[in-house]
């Protein structure tokens, strides 16, 4: 109740571009992404008591958004068998006009990641949250987040065919990424 004022209204508005970018990247559907953002704002507004003053408002909003997304997804999965594949497809056919070819390739590859990998890569790599913050947002262990981020990077790297002067996996340990890559 104490921070519910004009300030908060503008703080929430200021977060909308990031929330939309995150939602869009996660679900690959602009219309659904905006619905997710709307739900997030309504929930945030009516649950302000759940927000600890002084903590990270953006992290809190991202938490609400991803929880909303995943609970919706669970519902949808019961209805639509191959939701994953359909989403990856949608991500890859998003209307893009004047972007570089490599960015199109990137988006396509990104769309093929699992949701778990997408969200942590977005949080850490695009939004700049720390591993610890990302762990809190996704309700996962820090080690899990690190592992997911790394696997997402490895999968993208493989899909995009980037090369460096060394073997990606010199120890010959189990990589466990073929599933993710071959799905697209």
């Amino acid at each position: 109740m104490t921070i519910r004022d004009d300030d908060l209204q503008s703080l929430l508005i200021a977060a909308v571009p990031n929330l939309r970018a995150f939602a869009n990247s996660l679900c690959g559907d602009p219309t659904r992404a905006d619905d997710l953002v709307q739900d997030t704002l309504v929930k945030a507004w009516s649950n302000l008591e759940g927000f600890e003053k002084g903590s990270n408002l953006k992290a809190w909003l991202f938490t609400i958004l991803r929880n909303t997304y995943f609970s919706e997804l669970r519902k949808r999965r019961r209805e639509v068998e191959d939701a994953d594949g359909a989403m990856a497809e949608r991500m890859s056919v998003l209307p893009e006009q004047q972007v570089h070819m490599d960015l199109v390739d990137f988006k396509k590859a990104f769309g093929c990641l699992s949701d778990d990998q997408k969200e942590v890569l977005l949080l850490v790599g695009a939004e700049g949250f720390s591993y610890e913050e990302a762990a809190e947002i996704t309700n996962a262990a820090v080690g899990t987040v690190k592992s997911r981020v790394n696997r997402a990077r490895v999968a993208l790297n493989k899909a995009l065919g980037f090369e460096a002067g060394e073997n990606i996996n010199p120890n010959g340990e189990f990589a466990g990424i073929t599933r993710t890559v071959s799905r697209g």
Binding site: R151, N157, A164, I168
Partner: peptide, 21 residues
Amino acid sequence: TQAPLPVELQGQIGQRLREAY
């Protein structure tokens, strides 16, 4: 279980991710 990606490649991926974002 996965060896980390070389820093150079992490950078390339990070750059594209941020561009798209």
